[in-house]
């Protein structure tokens, strides 16, 4: 254990980490909101609970109701905003996460729809569904449960 003492290197690395962290600016404005159907009993959710549902770590809402996550397709700006703000993963971290989960047989990613409107319609129809869309696309068929 004590044959090598990399303390100098570790200290320099920590300095570098702290400097780099200080240099990261606050996130740009984005209007992503997490929604459920207006027919759903869910009124609020935490970012952590949302993350667990979208990463396939749970299949139910905190109240034990079944949860069906619906994603936007890759490359969508709202999708990137959602994963950056709520799940804290960029597109390559997310791809790495799903590679691990799919290739080890643990699970599979949420179904994907191509537009905010398509997600809103699918969520509105299904009381178990949870999705995220641009705030401007919200209407009375869905309920906003998290504004990250």
């Amino acid at each position: 254990m004590d044959s090598i003492k990399p303390h100098g290197i570790l200290r320099n690395c920590m300095k570098f980490l702290l400097l780099a962290m200080a240099a990261i600016p606050a996130g740009a404005d984005a209007a992503v909101v997490v929604i459920v159907s207006a027919k759903s009993p869910i009124t609020s959710i935490t970012a952590e609970q949302t993350a667990r549902i979208f990463l396939g770590k749970t299949t139910s809402f905190p109240n034990d109701g079944d949860a069906l996550p619906i994603d936007l397709t890759e490359g969508n700006a709202i999708r990137n905003e959602f994963y950056s703000k709520v799940i804290h993963k960029n597109p390559s971290q997310l791809a790495a996460y799903w590679a691990k989960v799919i290739f080890t047989g643990i699970g599979r990613p949420p179904i994907e729809l191509a537009s905010n409107e398509a997600v809103r319609k699918a969520v509105a129809k299904n009381p178990h569904a949870i999705g995220y869309i641009d705030k401007r696309d919200v209407n009375r068929s869905v309920r906003v449960i998290l504004e990250p």
Binding site: M1, S3, I4, P6, I9, L10, C13, F16, L17, A20, M21, N90, S92, Q93
Partner: peptide, 19 residues
């Protein structure tokens, strides 16, 4: 092991040993 993600780059440092 630790690393820091700066946009598309992740520098990392690891120390490992066995007895």
């Amino acid at each position: 092991s630790g690393g820091y993600r700066i946009k598309k780059f992740t520098p990392y440092l690891t120390y490992a040993q066995n007895s």
